[in-house]
Structure formats: structure tokens, C-alpha cells
Nucleic acid binder design. Structure first.
Lengths: 149, 149
DNA sequence: TACTAAATTGACTGTATTAGTCGAGTATAC
DNA sequence: GTATACTCGACTAATACAGTCAATTTAGTA
């Protein structure tokens, strides 16, 4: 039950794009250096976000990435799911049927996991990227610059 | 952000002890076979629960494990934390100071993680073992027997 | 058209965690 | 004293995490 760097990088990258709409498309390198993310690793993250339809890529010289929709309509949950699959996965609920147990709806532990999963999803889904950008701008000032955060 | 087998085994073991107070102490072997948990692995789990003060062990022949307190006063969160440490750990908040970032209270992503962490903790902390036992008895009948669950 | 900047892909590596297993040792009831 | 049962530490295989590397494709620009 830990949050991963990949998820954090994804959120920071999407926030960065949201905050720099004026200079779209934004290049991987710029996002990487501004947010303190290893460039090659960020490429993986952005590729996953592209496959999930959250960002769009523009290839070739002076290409880069931009958001496909408004920061108001992208939730933190969207980004996390794009990078890690379902939030708080429950082992016996996925995979092939061999290791699924056959009385899932009766399993007390699974019911607990489901309630926890739902609680965390609610938090992530009702927080939009715009919410996070607002909070960030408030704290950092207009520049949005923040060291290693 | 996944739940682990160890956590599930721990919850099931504690539930089993709660449901069999009449035959305390209960032996590892019995818990393992009744709950479908690898015996040796369960020993590790029970040892961790003992160190956390959730169960007490009685050594020697006809020894075993019993709960140290009422199932009403043990929460699922207690069990999970005993087995996995803090719930939903946030990488940059623990470990040695070298990889801690120095403006934690300003980090938007960490704030999001904290809210998610708090949501999940609430669910796990307000669910008691007795709650889970009740649900289980309701579904399975008095015997409490349940295959592979 | 050639050059170059940038995304894209897939394979590769090291480390940590998960999910166990094994075996030797210790305590205690009988 | 011996069988039973907990205790402890090391060990292993598989998976996930966090990157890195090299080769390729695409597209803007001189």
C-alpha cells in the first residue's frame, strides 16, 4: 500500500503541462528539468499518459506534449490509474481464474479492501489537476517554480 | 497501492482466534489449515502480531496463540499496520534525510497522498475484528467455516 | 534534400518487496 | 525425557519498482 514515484512524476508532469499551456507543446526535457524527474523515465510516464488519452504528443522538431482536455476535467485518479492500473488492486480479484476464489462476494476481507479502495478512489477522483495547480500557485507564487517538489 | 497476502492472512488469523475463544490457545496448524494459509508463513505473520501486542503466544506442548484483548478493541488497521508498517507510506516522508525533500509542507502531491492515506486509515481503523467476525458469521452461519476465504 | 530535434519502442539492469521455505534451536506439558 | 509447539534467522523464487540504453521514426528547418 505505497504510493510510487511513477505516480508522483505523472501528477507533477500533468500539473506542469497545465501550468504552461501558453508554451504548448512542452518538451520532455523541459518538464524533466523543471520537475526534477529523470528524463528517460519521464518518457515512459508520458507514453503511458498518452495511451490513456490524458496527453497528446506532437512528434518531430519543436514537438512535445500537451493536455488533451482541461485541467478541470482531469482528476488525480485518472493519472494514477493510467500509470498503475486500478487503484489499490486486490490480489484475488484479478489475474486468471485459477487463483480467483469462488466466493468473492462472501469474503469479509475482500469487502474491507473494497471499502478502503473506494475511500481512496473518492479522494483521488474528486481532486482535479486544476485543484492541485491552484494549491501550488498559491504556495509558490505565480511562477509556479518549486525546487525538487 | 496493493493489498498483500500477508495482510489478508493476518486478518483471517485474528478473526479465526476471535471466533474460537473457547479453544484457546489455538495452534498455528489449526489456523493454517482452517484458513488456507501456508503454515510456515503464518508463523511469521503471528510472530509479527505478537511483537505488536495483538496476540499472545503460549509455548510448549498444547501451546498456541490467543488474542490479548477483545475483538471489539482490535481494528483492521491495527493488524495491517502490525504487518506492513504505516498504511500507504509516502516515499519522500520516511527513510534517511538525504532523500527527504526539504519543503514537504509545500508539496502538493504529498498533500494529496496524505488525504488519501487518511481516507484509507479511517476505513481500516473504524472496522473492528468483531465487525468482520459478525459479517462472516452472518454469511457463513454459526460454524464460521468458509472455503479458501 | 539534408540536417536535426524530438517522440517512440523495446530491451536491459539493479534494487526492493513479496511470498514463501528450510532448518536449527528453545520452551513446556505430560 | 520426549514429543509438541513456538522462535529465530537465513535462504530462495518471483514480481514490481526505478530507472537506463540504444535504435528508430517523425517532422520542422536550413
Amino acid at each position: 500500500m505505497n504510493f510510487t514515484s511513477k505516480e508522483e512524476y505523472g501528477l507533477r508532469a500533468v500539473m506542469h503541462l497545465a501550468m504552461h499551456e501558453a508554451s504548448w507543446p512542452v518538451q520532455t526535457r523541459e518538464v524533466a528539468s523543471a520537475e526534477g524527474i529523470p528524463e528517460q523515465f519521464l518518457e515512459q510516464v508520458l507514453a503511458a499518459l498518452r495511451r490513456a488519452g490524458i496527453v497528446r504528443s506532437i512528434r518531430g522538431a519543436s514537438g512535445g506534449y500537451e493536455l488533451t482536455s482541461s485541467p478541470h476535467s482531469i482528476s488525480a485518479g485518472d493519472v494514477v490509474r493510467a500509470l498503475s492500473g486500478p487503484i489499490a488492486r486486490i490480489p484475488c480479484l484479478d489475474g486468471d481464474s485459477t487463483d480467483k476464489c469462488n466466493k468473492l462476494d462472501r469474503c469479509v476481507v475482500v469487502n474491507l479492501w473494497k471499502r478502503a479502495q473506494s475511500a481512496i478512489s473518492q479522494v483521488l477522483d474528486k481532486t482535479t489537476i486544476q485543484d492541485m495547480v491552484d494549491e501550488r500557485m498559491l504556495r509558490d507564487g505565480e511562477s509556479g517554480f518549486m525546487m525538487h517538489i
